[in-house]
Design a protein around this nucleic acid. Sequence first.
DNA 1: ACTCGTTTCATACACTTGTTTGACATCGCC
DNA 2: GGCGATGTCAAACAAGTGTATGAAACGAGT
Lengths: 229, 229
Amino acid sequence: MMKGARATNAKRRPRSRARHSDAETRDRLLEAGRLLFSEHGFAKVSVRDICREATANVAAVSYHFGDKLGLYEEVMRGGLDMLAAFNATMLNAGPNASAAERLRHYIAKYLPRLVKPLGDDEWLPKLMRHEIREPTAAAQLVFEHAILPRMRFLAGVMAELLDCDEDDPRVGRCVVSVQAQCLFYLPDAFKTAIVPEWPPQSDAAIAAAVEHIVEFSLAGIRAIAAKKT
Amino acid sequence: MMKGARATNAKRRPRSRARHSDAETRDRLLEAGRLLFSEHGFAKVSVRDICREATANVAAVSYHFGDKLGLYEEVMRGGLDMLAAFNATMLNAGPNASAAERLRHYIAKYLPRLVKPLGDDEWLPKLMRHEIREPTAAAQLVFEHAILPRMRFLAGVMAELLDCDEDDPRVGRCVVSVQAQCLFYLPDAFKTAIVPEWPPQSDAAIAAAVEHIVEFSLAGIRAIAAKKT
DNA sequence: ACTCGTTTCATACACTTGTTTGACATCGCC
DNA sequence: GGCGATGTCAAACAAGTGTATGAAACGAGT
């Protein structure tokens, strides 16, 4: 009767540490959740799958996290700071970079990240992609930590290139134009089912795509800037 | 014992027509399938949902179509020719239209179609959007009848604007750049969960988006054409 | 040693899923 | 009228889902 209260109870681990030689059940569940949720998404993973992977009892999820969604949110929360590191390298082109250079740097870092298959340890990006395709309650976290910083970064670049304020409507549309071109290269069940060689995998093809998007977009932005409206 | 054979049996309706005053069960199932599949997608609709909507027995789907997927494919097949009509108006800008005019016409027709909510009778486009998000075996049909003609059309436009052959690698990349910008305006569970006002709904905003994509893309294409590679 | 709070366990609950079964109804046709 | 093919029906099946239960095991504190 005190089990379900575990999730809502504030103080829960005051003592009794390291009784097992291996990791505690709670940690094993989190690790199994990271692995399976990132691989198949929230809906397609059952509580029993997770408990089997974690060699834990089916009731363990309910006991330690309240319910399946509680475990999922805990998994997602546990890795949001990893995003800051990557965003930092992608959004920082160096101290004296011009707006055009910052845009090129962004695309050159972002596109390979989208195209190249993710490693087994990169569970957080995998999880985010599932979240984008079928959002759960955790979608807000993904947006705030991953999407919003990039949008702000691009908005700054665009405002400089357009020589206008950041809330000029043209800024948002240019951000969309660049972001949309990049995201089209994200592997996608439909596209790869139809065109198996999508997205291009070779480094040469990826580099060509980067170069294309940069040239295409810079020219587009200049044209929009010239329109003045 | 002859029931399941219904799906694989070639000749199935040689006689016994119009015994009911209302539509036959088979047709009611197809209509319910159109309605529910287009609204919620294949996976999220149960056989019982369909049979309740069609006021038919749960066994009716198995009897008439073999299984749930058989009904789904029959539903999809029954409307693929509707696509030809819309593609015709979207891909035909008039006899003497220049390449730039054809591109503008395409975007101006396509984007509102993506943004504006679909009517209750437009079940086929709804169904296609579900198919794109989580493809089933019918994805190939969607691609051939809906996507491929548009890609070919855009490739022709690009080849003319770039003044090159259609299998020039720049053609494909420009097609992607234009198509990606348009598709970003497709309503999306994640985007609307995060930015409720996405995509823009007012006619003015849509017109501005169309204008933006046209200007942005034409300038981009010109820049790519100038690069010669 | 004996509690007592914490954790694990096998098991059960209540529900949904797609599909099948065998009895029953209905019709055209000889 | 009776035959046989064609549909329809309530009910059941087998497998899955998330979650709850109550009894055990366990380790630390007194």
